[in-house]
Design a protein around this nucleic acid. Structure first.
Length: 273
DNA sequence: CCCGATTCCTGTAGGC
DNA sequence: TGCCTACAGGAATCGG
């Protein structure tokens, strides 16, 4: 469930700790993630310095001097800093040790995450190449969404979750943005007019920036991690997601849950149309 | 080409 | 209490 805000929160927490540091050691406990962890990891990276930590959609880009480690958290992946002597916990798959006894661990119970090494421009990697614009950039406008939605018959929910349309939106923020835009998830996206496309763009930006702001407040969890807590997964108030049967926060009508392509959608039938 | 269904995995929740 | 099944979700890939 890490979507753009959770990944951005992770980036904000890791960046000041690891940027400029040299990787001294890498440990792989489990190579079988979504795809096998790149064979170059860790040997090729040892002794190399991290210049920058970037994000593209839901991907983290650890930019080393000699190449880039592309990381996806999948559904259950998270990083945490630990004392080097801390014994490995269940589902701790990868460890990155930096100069100054800094030990970063990757834990991922469902193993949908990815650790891929590339020496080319990571943005040209097949996984990132066709990704749509960053939702918080000026590239994402109502006009852009309107244009992209003319020639497809998919629902507006499927549309906003398509990484080729917009980068970084997952099920939770798709539901929240559609509520904010007053649009039913099952509505055909080609039926939107320009005004509705504008509302959708504004709602996506608002929902995601609010979540990032809320994530900033939980950054300390990376450094004072309590067992059972997943750093980067922060509490926040959601309007519809996982609230089926509960009263709509705006009008009181019970929130409805439907299945779209085997995935849960939540909406208020009175506030969305 | 387009799009819905299937697939990977395991923790959690619900039913009996 | 305990076992068993269903379900959750990101996104590549399959298949109609």
């Amino acid at each position: 469930m890490p979507e753009l805000p959770e990944v951005e929160t992770t980036r904000l927490a890791l960046s000041p700790q690891i940027c400029g540091k040299i990787l001294c050691k890498g440990v792989v406990v489990q190579r079988s993630l979504r795809w096998p962890v790149s064979a170059e990891f860790p040997d090729t990276l040892i002794g190399d310095r991290i210049a920058d930590l970037d994000r593209r959609g839901k991907y983290l880009l650890f930019r080393f001097t000699r190449g880039t480690l592309i990381v996806h958290l999948g559904m259950s992946g998270y990083f945490r800093f630990v004392d080097c002597r801390t014994p490995l916990e269940n589902h701790d798959h990868i460890e990155l040790r930096f100069e100054g006894d800094l030990c970063l661990r990757y834990n991922d119970s469902r193993r949908f995450g990815a650790f891929l090494w590339t020496t080319n421009d990571p943005l040209l990697h097949p996984l990132l190449r066709d990704m749509g614009p960053e939702p918080l950039s000026t590239e994402l406008t109502g006009g852009y969404l309107f244009g992209r939605s003319r020639s497809t018959r998919v629902s507006v929910k499927t549309f906003v979750m398509d990484q080729k349309v917009v980068a970084g939106v997952g099920n939770i923020y798709a539901n929240e943005a559609l509520f904010e835009a007053g649009l039913l998830p099952a509505k055909a996206v080609c039926a939107l007019d320009v005004v509705q496309a504008n509302r959708l763009a504004d709602a996506l930006k608002a929902v995601l920036s609010r979540a990032i702001a809320s994530g900033r407040n939980s950054l300390e969890r990376f450094f004072f991690h309590r067992p059972g807590e997943k750093p980067g997964y922060f509490p926040q108030t959601l309007n519809v997601y996982d609230r089926d049967g509960a009263p709509c926060r705006r009008c009181g009508h019970p929130v409805v849950k439907i299945l779209q392509g085997g995935r849960a959608s939540y909406f208020c039938p009175q506030c969305q149309s």
